[in-house]
Write a protein that binds this DNA or RNA. Sequence first.
DNA 1: GTCTATAGCGGGATAGAC
DNA 2: GTCTATCCCGCTATAGAC
Lengths: 202, 202
Amino acid sequence: MLHVNDTEKIIFDAAQKVFTIKGFSGATMDDISKEANVNKAALHYYYRSKEKLFELVFQKNYHVILDKSRNILETTDNIEEIIKKLNNMYFDTLSEHPYLANCILNEYTTNSDRVLGLITSNGSVNFSILRLLALVRVKIFKGKTDFEYSLNLMLNIISVNIFPFLIRPILINLFKMNDVRFNSIMNNRKIYLTDFLSKHLQ
Amino acid sequence: MLHVNDTEKIIFDAAQKVFTIKGFSGATMDDISKEANVNKAALHYYYRSKEKLFELVFQKNYHVILDKSRNILETTDNIEEIIKKLNNMYFDTLSEHPYLANCILNEYTTNSDRVLGLITSNGSVNFSILRLLALVRVKIFKGKTDFEYSLNLMLNIISVNIFPFLIRPILINLFKMNDVRFNSIMNNRKIYLTDFLSKHLQ
DNA sequence: GTCTATAGCGGGATAGAC
DNA sequence: GTCTATCCCGCTATAGAC
C-alpha cells in the first residue's frame, strides 16, 4: 500500500521532475537519486531500468493535458465556452507544470522511436487526439467544414495557448523577468486569448 | 580555402543534421562521423571537442530565423505586408529545415546554462529579439499601446507559425501523412494565417 | 591531414552484505 | 528494502603511426 513517504513514490516524483526538465538522455540516474535523496540502487530495485522509469513518467505527463482537453470537449457544448475553458485549463496546467509541454515535445523530436512505441502500444492516446479533432469539427463547425479548415482552427487554439509556455525560458531570460511576472502576463493573456479566438467564430 | 568537398564543411553539415535532430546529449560523435563518412578523430582535429562543434551549429541555427525576421521588420512598413512576409518566411525556412525550431527550443529547455552562455556572450542575438518587439510596437501600434499588448500580438504571430512545425512528428504520426502532404497543408495554411492574423489589426 | 589504437571516465546496472 | 562496492559498456578525447 502507498503512503506519503513511500520510497517508490518519492523516486517517481523525483524522476518526473528531472526527466521533464532534462529529457531522457540529458538526465542521469544519479541526478534522480540525488533529487529523491535515496540510494541509486533503489531506483533499479523499484523500476528495473532507466528506460522503464522514463516510460512511466512520460505516460503520466502525456495524459495530464490530454485527459483534461478531452473532458472539456465531452462535457461542454457552447463554442465560446469550450475555448474559454481550454484557455483556463492550459494556463492552470502549464503554470503548475512549466516543463510538461517541453518534455513531451522534446522526446517526440529527439527520440521519436521510443515515444511512438509507447503511444502506439497504448491505443487510447492516439484515439483521444483524433477524437479531439472530431469533436472540434462537430461542435464548432457542426460537421459543415473540411478537415484542413478544422485542423487549422484547432492548431491555432493550441498554438497560442501552449507556445508561450514552450519558450518560457527564452522570454524569462530576454525580458529579465521572474516567475511571478511571467505568470502574471500569462494570466492576463487568458482573457486576451478568449477574445482573440472568439473573433474568428462569427 | 573552402571548396565543396572540404572535410571541415562536410563534418559541420553532418553535425548540424545530427545535433538538430537528436540534441546535444542525444547525439554522439560517432553518429556524426558516420553521417559525414569521416573518421571520428577528424572531428576532434577540426573542432577540438563536442561542445565546440555544438556551439557553432547552435549559433548558426539560432541566426537563421532571427536574421530573416529582423530583415523583414527593418525593410517593410505596411502591417499586412509584414505579417504576410513573416508567414511566408516561416513556412519556407521551417519546410527547408524541419527540426530547426525544435533544436533551439530543446537546448533552451534541457540545458539552458549552455545556451544562455552562448547567447549572452553574443550580445547581438538578444538585442535583435528585443529590437523585433520594439519594431512591432512602433510599426504596428505606432507606439500607442503597452508592452503586454504588443507582446501578446507578437506571441500570437509567432505561435501560429512555428508551433505546427514543432509538433510536426506528432501530426505526421497521428494523421498517417507523409512529408508531401504535411507541406501541402502548411502551404495552404500560409494564406489562411495571413487572413486570420489580419483580422485583428482593424 | 587521416587513420588506428587506446586511454580515461561517466553512467547504467547488479551482486551481495546487512 | 536499503546500502556499498564493483562490473562493464559506451563515449569523448588523444597519442602516435603513416
